[in-house]
């Protein structure tokens, strides 16, 4: 379909990398999705922080996510030069993350649908983790 062919041409801005999140983006460049997890309270969170937003412990570490999740909510952005799908995906590890759903028929998406991570190149920076129907 036309919308899908166009989607390949959407230019993605590079994410700004900080010392706190460099590992996350380096892993993305290797095709791995990281999640930050607290060893004090056992909770994973997103976006990643050094200090746990739940218990405020500094005992946090990276774990490699399975890359599997479900669509919590989404919206097809029609009023854009190239339509795209904004979404929150709830990861198997717990947290929900803001992302895009790609490489699919936008009109057949539904909340609760199982999705899996893919990485999409950005304009001169680390690739972005996005999701596609599993």
């Amino acid at each position: 379909m036309a919308a899908q062919a166009q989607a390949k041409e959407r230019k993605l801005p590079a994410p700004a990398v900080s010392p706190e999140t460099k590992d996350y983006w380096d892993a993305a460049a290797q095709g791995r999705l990281l999640v930050r997890k607290c060893t004090a309270c056992g909770e994973a969170h997103h976006y990643p922080r050094t200090i746990c937003p739940f218990c405020f412990s500094d005992k946090t570490e990276w774990i490699t996510a399975s890359g599997k999740g479900t669509i919590y909510s989404y919206s097809v952005m029609r009023r854009a030069p190239v339509p795209y799908v904004m979404a929150y995906v709830t990861l198997a590890e717990g947290p929900s993350m803001m992302t895009n759903i790609v490489d699919c028929d936008f009109d057949r998406l539904r909340i609760g649908q199982e999705v899996t991570v893919v990485f999409k190149p950005t304009d001169g920076g680390a690739p972005l983790p996005m999701f596609t129907p599993a």
């Binding site: 993605l12 801005p13 590079a14 994410p15 700004a16 990398v17 900080s18 706190e20 999140t21 983006w25 997103h46 976006y47 922080r49 909510s73 989404y74 919206s75 952005m77 009023r79 854009a80 795209y84 904004m86 979404a87 929150y88 993350m97 803001m98 992302t99 895009n100 909340i111 950005t122 972005l128 996005m130």
Partner: peptide, 22 residues
Amino acid sequence: PDEPFEFPYGPTVVNMYAMCAM
């Protein structure tokens, strides 16, 4: 701190509210 994990995906005022509606 949130921006690198959001802005590149194209959040706009309308599509963020739209996800609530959905």
